[in-house]
């Protein structure tokens, strides 16, 4: 119920300010599936998707809603969880968008970029979003958006570099016939499950850190 209310509020903010970012994400998704340099754009749109939460939080902070939220009957955990939930929703949406774009490219333009095989890639992208959220949110909950943005930018640059490197490496090794996971000899299912496990653990740790730092936060 409370979660619904907060998500609803974020949705309203998104409707007001998020549309341009959404257009950019969509554009990158389209470029990604037609581009020679697919991994770069894929990672870019996923990062952008994960940053949607930061955008919303920036507007909240500007109006000092973060302070107002303390006055409402919300547990600190609820306030923290809501942003994680939102991050995952955003990542899911971006991953879904990329899947659709790939499907369209494959079906109507006969483009085969080798990057996308349906379920495992969807999950992979989704987990990338989760990974970014697990790094991003503790920083935002600790410092707030305006004070945290420098730390955040550094962290995200490193993270995005790592992600792009990994994805590119996997892709190139597996190209041209293979899927994203072609380079690895493990079965796709095992690999996806492994990534899922790592992301879930990271998220769980991240949530705990966020709750702890948020409880100490002053406004």
């Amino acid at each position: 119920m409370k979660m619904k209310g907060m998500l609803r509020k974020d949705w309203y903010i998104f409707l007001k300010y998020g549309k341009i970012t959404a257009v950019f994400i969509a554009a990158y998704a389209v470029i990604a599936v037609f581009s020679q340099n697919a991994p770069f754009y894929v990672v870019f749109s996923v990062v952008l998707g994960a940053l949607m939460v930061k955008l919303v939080m920036a507007y909240e902070e500007q109006d000092k809603w973060d302070c107002m939220a303390v006055c409402l009957p919300l547990r600190p955990e609820q306030i923290v969880w809501e942003k994680y939930l939102e991050s995952l929703v955003c990542s899911g949406a971006v991953a879904f968008l990329l899947e659709v774009a790939t499907f369209v490219a494959r079906t109507f333009f006969s483009r085969e970029n080798g990057l996308f095989s349906p379920l495992s890639t969807f999950l992979m992208l989704f987990f990338m979003g989760g990974l970014i959220a697990s790094v991003e949110l503790p920083i935002l909950f600790r410092f707030g958006v305006s004070r945290g943005r420098i730390v955040l930018t550094l962290a995200l640059m490193v993270l995005a570099g790592l992600l792009a490197g990994t994805v590119t490496g996997l892709w190139e090794a597996g190209n041209p016939q293979g899927s994203l996971f072609g380079a690895v000899s493990l079965p796709e299912g095992v690999l996806t499950a492994g990534t899922a496990a790592v992301t879930v653990i990271l998220l769980a740790v991240s949530v705990r850190i966020s709750v702890a730092v948020y409880k100490k936060r002053e406004f």
Binding site: Y12, I13, K16, Y17, E60, W65, C67, M68, C71, L72
Partner: peptide, 17 residues
């Protein structure tokens, strides 16, 4: 907090609403 109404100086709802 269900029973407490708070009005803060400057802090308010997100202005997009």
């Amino acid at each position: 907090k269900e029973e407490i109404g708070v009005v803060l100086d400057e802090a308010c709802f997100p202005a997009a609403l």
